[in-house]
């Protein structure tokens, strides 16, 4: 608990957290606006609720509305988590940290705990706003709030899970890459455009080499995340839980490998 308290104080005593918090507001606004607009357009088109495999179902629209801010929220959680680690090397505070706590794995565990707290906080922030604005958006487009539907609460819960898993991936990557700039750029690129790039790569591989590659694309973390959040989009897609397992595996492998390396690495 001492270490978690120390890590929280580290986070609170630089300007980093509020820069992230401030940038979260407009990003959330954009996401909500986009989802609101989509809802109103789709409602006017009068798309029937045709289940999970339709072009775009009402269920999915409503889920998106109740998880507005997920894309930006997860990105910020991912980066902030990674920076919790890379900061120590960037600002040469690793020496003081590991002199105080020579059992380095405990430091990494404390950082993971703080990253999860950040993930929960961001999720609480966007979810709180979503529970206010999504019903407003739905009623403004002459829809009911869907708050009685279990799929809404499932989407909100999965949203939390995705935030937490990406926080752990962030810590793991921060430990592995260590360079502040390198980590930030790698993770941003992977997260923001990785999905498109890897979807294209796997589509080409599936087309040219073997159909099995289409199944393997779930190994890409962003695609695993998408599968977890949105569920299977076509009958041949894998079930949701596979996405969760893949993300958890990334977080676990990066975290364990990174911790082992951190334990052995010379701090000079």
């Amino acid at each position: 608990m001492n270490l978690i308290s120390a890590e929280l104080l580290k986070l609170r005593t630089t300007s980093l957290w509020w820069i992230f918090a401030v940038s979260m507001v407009p990003l959330y606004g954009l996401a909500l606006g986009y989802n609101w607009l989509t809802t109103s357009v789709i409602t006017e088109m009068d798309v029937p609720d045709e289940g999970p495999f339709g072009l775009i179902s009402m269920q999915q629209i409503v889920s998106n509305l109740y998880t507005s801010g997920q894309f930006a929220g997860v990105l910020l959680v991912l980066l902030l988590s990674a920076i919790l680690v890379t900061n120590e090397f960037f600002h040469l505070t690793a020496t003081a940290t590991f002199l105080t706590t020579p059992r380095r794995e405990l430091v990494i565990l404390a950082k993971m705990a703080v990253a999860v707290l950040i993930a929960v906080t961001v999720w609480l922030f966007t979810t709180g706003l979503n529970l206010i604005f999504a019903p407003v958006a739905l009623s403004s487009t002459n829809n009911e709030s869907f708050l009685g539907e279990s799929f809404v609460w499932q989407a909100i819960s999965l949203n939390l899970l995705v935030h937490v898993l990406w926080a752990l991936v962030g810590i793991g990557c921060g430990v592995l890459i260590r360079s502040q700039i390198g980590t930030t750029i790698t993770l941003t690129v992977l997260y923001v455009v990785g999905t498109q790039i890897f979807t294209a790569v796997f589509a080409v591989l599936a087309n040219q080499v073997d159909e099995v590659f289409m199944q393997l694309r779930v190994l890409v973390p962003t695609l695993a995340s998408e599968l977890l959040v949105s569920g299977p989009q076509s009958p041949e897609d894998l079930p949701r839980w596979v996405g969760a397992v893949v993300l958890l595996a990334y977080a676990g492998v990066a975290g364990v490998l990174g911790t082992l390396i951190t334990k052995r690495r010379d701090i000079a």
């Binding site: 104080l9 600002h91 105080t100």
Partner: peptide, 25 residues
């Protein structure tokens, strides 16, 4: 210990730097 490369975060106050060590210890 004082080591040559030991340092604090540029944007953090000295007092907070020390309080973080207090918390951890």
């Amino acid at each position: 210990a004082i080591l040559e490369a030991s340092s604090a975060h540029r944007g953090r106050s000295a007092r907070n730097h020390l309080r973080i060590i207090c918390r951890a210890a």
